[in-house]
Simulated assay, not measured.
Amino acid sequence: MILTTKWHGRGHWCASFSSTDIPVIKPRKKIGVIKVANESYTESELNTKKANLSASRKERIQLPNYGGDNYGGKKLHIGEFLSHPSAIEALLNTNALKSFQCLCPNTYRCTLQRVKLLNFEAAPVLDLRVTPTNEDCTVEMLSCKFEGSKIMEHQNNHFTAFMRNRLSWDTNDADSFLEVDVKLNLILEIYTRPFTMMPVSAVERPGNLMLQALLDRLVPLLLQQLLQDYCKWVHQQLDPVP
């Protein structure tokens, strides 16, 4: 760029620039803004973590020998008892339930007593299928949900549970026994803080211990109650109420 001066009359100088030397200033390109569609995602969708919890318990007990001369020559095996309606009530422990409903043959809805914790309360509702055969009897959980506080009912969307309890027996007179094999699985969605910040193992380890402790306590109680109801049923068959 060159600056030139010229003398004008009356004592004035005039400065001017050469037009060929004036730099051309190009307009800056407009920076485009990329717009992101406003899609709403739930917190559980953004932080998808699932803990797989499991526990199992197998136990075998000796069965009393209900038969022979002391019982009128009848052989009242455990298999006959487990195919009887009274055994279904014993297996499902209906005396401890809030309500018990038969949905269809071999399928039952069991509502447990409400559990209160802080300001929340909920009653677990289980749909169970009982399948007796000549060799065993299987109890399967078809669904599990909570009824009660809204925040507890909301948890129904964030977990799935499966339970299978198989009872098998050997009715040889020398060594009659009943074996129980229970498996419990729970898939829990981790979607709230601070658990989303932790590794899945931080939830699975204590969860597995809790489920195992639950089965270790409940399975012996189930067997004890089952034998008591079996004994009661045997005596009812021998001495029917008129």
Results as ranks from 00 to 15, higher is better:
M1D: 04
I2S: 10
L3R: 11
W7F: 11
W7C: 14
H8V: 04
G9T: 13
R10P: 01
S16E: 05
S16C: 04
P23L: 07
K26P: 01
P27V: 05
K29M: 09
I31H: 06
V33R: 14
I34S: 12
V36C: 05
N38P: 01
Y41G: 04
Y41A: 10
S44P: 00
E45Q: 14
T48L: 15
K49M: 09
L53N: 00
L53T: 01
A55W: 02
A55K: 00
S56M: 10
S56C: 04
K58G: 08
I61Y: 11
N65I: 11
G67K: 10
G72A: 00
K74P: 00
K74T: 04
K75Y: 03
H77Q: 14
E80H: 06
F81M: 07
L82P: 00
L82N: 01
S83E: 01
I88A: 13
E89W: 00
A90P: 00
L91N: 00
L92H: 07
L92W: 06
T94Y: 06
A96Y: 08
L97H: 07
F100C: 06
F100S: 08
C102F: 01
L103Y: 00
P105Y: 05
P105D: 08
N106G: 07
T107A: 11
T111P: 01
K116R: 09
N119C: 06
F120W: 05
P124Q: 04
V125W: 08
L128N: 01
L128C: 12
R129S: 12
V130M: 02
T133E: 02
D136W: 03
M141N: 04
S143M: 09
S143N: 11
K145N: 13
E147K: 07
S149F: 02
S149V: 06
S149E: 09
K150A: 14
N156D: 10
N157F: 07
H158P: 05
F159N: 02
M163T: 15
L167V: 08
W169G: 04
T171D: 13
N172G: 13
D175T: 15
F177P: 00
R193G: 15
T196N: 04
M197G: 11
M198G: 07
P199D: 14
V200Q: 09
A202H: 03
V203I: 15
E204V: 13
G207I: 06
G207V: 10
G207E: 07
L209R: 15
L209E: 12
M210E: 06
Q212E: 12
Q212M: 05
A213D: 12
A213F: 07
D216H: 06
R217N: 11
L221Q: 12
L223R: 09
Q224C: 06
Q224T: 13
L226T: 05
H235C: 02
P240A: 12
P242V: 06
